[in-house]
Simulated scan of single mutants.
Amino acid sequence: MIKKLDWYIIKKFWGTFVYALAVMALIASVIDYSDKVKSFVKHHAPFSAQLWYYENFIPHILALLFALFIFIATIFFTSKMAYKSEIVAFLASGASFNRFLRPYFIGGGVICGVFLVLNHWVVPRANRNRIEFEDRYVHEKVTYSDHDVHLRLSPELYIFLQNYDYSVNTGYRFSSERVKGTLLLEKLTAERISYDSAKNVYHLYNVVLRTNDGIKEKLQILPELTRPYPFHPSDLYENTDMAYALTTPELDRLIAQEKLRGRESLNLYYVEKHRRTAQPAAGFILCIIGACIASRKIRGGSGLHLAIGILISALYMLALQLSTTFSVKAGLDPLIAAWIPNFLFGIFAYILYRREVT
């Protein structure tokens, strides 16, 4: 049963957390606006579009720093309770420290559960709108695709393109190979390729087409050839921001598609997928750490508690960034990369908890 004392702590918890979110959302929006205002003016972004952008920017920044917010909120209101000797009175009544932590488990669990749902479905949709706005009014338009692009379009079809110029809708040094087992069925090379968006086909120029049928080989040299290929020119440019703009089911489909195409940077997508679950769990762990640290009345008061909280938050963000970098650049397993900060700080939380209980 949730009793009055539990509701007293939970209301303080939720109230401080919401207040921290509101303050940080305002500060982040002001900083972001000051950074992008020149781009808004340069690209003539309407005021209504700017408001719409910040409606989607706020969920992004809040989700990004969620663990920090819940930790600082826990430190702040718990430290004030300790300073007023409310925690001492609670424990002096005969209640255990486990009983004192119960509203933290409930309040933190509810917040983390809500953010778990938001991370998988709501925040990605907001990121999609944010990225669309930035591509239109902030970032310069992409002119060229990546260089030396290799894609696997099906189990038998592979393509290569030196680069694609989006300004003139033309690609250069194109080749495609159709392979079955160890047999090369067809090899096509073209000096230029252009995409016909109306018919969803590609026009190839100066084509050399070689086909094999058993021991028979056929060579054709054609000035022009039209063929449908199952890819769009935008697929030639690897936009990693899309990982943050897709809901988890959509991200799973993207991973399967990019895995088929032979992309090398799949770890970034896997880390993002696992991070959406690991981050709310991190918030819960940091909530317990904050309660254990701030429940003691010390000489430095709330200021010292907040300083310790900010230091621990910075260490967590550093550990998460390092593990992500090791996964993307050095091949560390994405699941380990997303969860290793939680594992390390979970051990720290358990040590603090045992110290308070014993």
Rank of each mutant, 00 (worst) to 15 (best):
I72K: 00
I72L: 09
A73N: 12
A82C: 14
K84D: 13
E86S: 01
V88M: 11
L91H: 08
A92C: 01
G94T: 11
S96N: 03
R99Y: 01
L101Y: 00
R102Q: 02
R102S: 01
Y104G: 00
F105Y: 02
F105H: 00
G108N: 01
G108L: 08
G109T: 00
C112R: 01
C112E: 00
H120P: 08
V122K: 07
V123S: 10
P124F: 04
P124E: 06
R125M: 10
A126P: 09
N129I: 15
N129D: 12
R130V: 06
I131A: 11
E132F: 09
F133R: 03
D135Q: 12
R136H: 15
E140N: 13
K141P: 11
T143P: 09
H147L: 15
R152F: 04
L153D: 03
S154G: 06
S154I: 06
P155N: 06
P155H: 07
P155R: 04
E156C: 00
E156W: 07
Y158V: 06
L161S: 14
N163W: 13
Y164P: 05
D165F: 04
D165M: 06
S167L: 13
S167R: 12
N169D: 02
Y172L: 09
Y172I: 08
S175Y: 12
V179E: 10
K180V: 12
